[in-house]
Design a protein around this nucleic acid. Sequence first.
RNA 1: GGAGAGUUGGCAGAGUGGUAAUGCAGCGGAUUGCUAAUCCGUCAUCGGGAAUACCGAUGCACAGGUUCGAGUCCUGUACUCUCCGCCA
Length: 428
Amino acid sequence: MLDIKYIAENPEVIKEGLAKKGYTKEDIDIDALIALYKDINKLKTSSQALSEEKNKLSNSIKSASAEERPAIIAKSKQIGEELKVEQEKLAAEQEKFDMVMWRMPNMPSPESPVGKDDSENVVRRKVGELPKFDFTPRDHIELMELNDWSEMERIAKVSGSRTYAIKNDLAKLELAMHMMVLDKLRANGFTVITVPSISKEKPLYGQGYLPFSRDEVYYMPADDLYLSGTAELILNSLRADEILQENELPILYAGFSPCFRREAGAAGKDTRGLVRVHQFMKTEQFVICKNDVAESEKWHKKLLQISEEVLQDLELPYQVLEVCTGDMGAPKYRQYDLEAWVPSQNCYRETHSCSNITEWQARRTNLRYRDNADGKVKFVHTLNNTGIATPRALVPFIENHQNADGTINIPEKLRPYMGGVAKIGKNA
RNA sequence: GGAGAGUUGGCAGAGUGGUAAUGCAGCGGAUUGCUAAUCCGUCAUCGGGAAUACCGAUGCACAGGUUCGAGUCCUGUACUCUCCGCCA
């Protein structure tokens, strides 16, 4: 959500930002929005004048004589009727206004590359050497079958498509990755927190998932509850409506949760294996900091650095992508994606997504803090990034670290979490 | 699932139909001075206004209702606590 005063004062800046994000005048008409805002203010002023008159009359009744009262009450009632009409008009206009405001995307950073879709994202750097195999490498599905690590066909019968069941050392590896990342985040000052995957509707608006992507989220009508696609959803609303003290900031959460996604828009893509599933586990980095772009950009870089370290610790070659304005989601000010190399697909695949949301979510959740410098109440900035998401991260992991005999090498940094072993697999 | 109690500012906490006390913390200012206090203001949102002057509206969990007037009365909902029941 944006500040309507800023919009009214800088309509051209907003129009430019909307255009960069791929919005047309038909999507959001800024001039009409500002006109509506001015109308609403006029209505507010006139209905407030009525309220004032009514309040004065009501307050005068107590001290009025018995003879005076009926006339005052009659007048007050009449003003009440007028006021009701004004307020109904105001509520209708306000609803129209809110509808547009809830759909207004964040403005992109001036640093973000301008582009229309994912083809215009910019590779900032590539890190790590691509593996060279002196044998024909297997894809992750073959490796799982070879090592008795999965029950992919059976679980589809039980739970439907795009689900997974992995077992033995691969199941252990999945949890080990989360433990490794949680330890790293704790060492960086994050509070480790496990959160539910169940959410009421309001947090989905707070995050900015609704009203944009209703098709993507599981909904349980019997209880009017949703299944969370990421701990970001929960963490973003955990402190909603609070006014924090500045010295409580920054708040750093390392949130772990099962995550659920309908993948409605991904029909036909990645249907086999572990790349795209309806339920997965994610350790999420979430930051709440002061309302200062220099400060949140500093945290954005820090979050990116942590997740790069994760991929380096896992000894995976990856690239850092700066996401262009047209490919960013509505909430985002600036976004980096990390993509790890997947040998069987001969390309990089996304493992992390790192975003600075600035105050856009905080306005939606009404999360503020009192600034020490001027005593004013301001909206915080929020940021989020993947810590590690499994089973997707297992795909590049087992493919990059495979040997000719189907065993998988365990990088040194992960060994403490795997009982010290250097290699897993049937032939290990 | 059942019964009862509760929800007032950043926090604590009064207020049983007539303009939301007070304390603590924070911020700003003043004063005394000697390293701590005292006093004043401010301290939720919005509108008018050049304004950090001033005026006004809204705000007591949320949504309705009764009333000239609701924190206070009525209805519904959410949440918290206590007890009972069930349960991995």
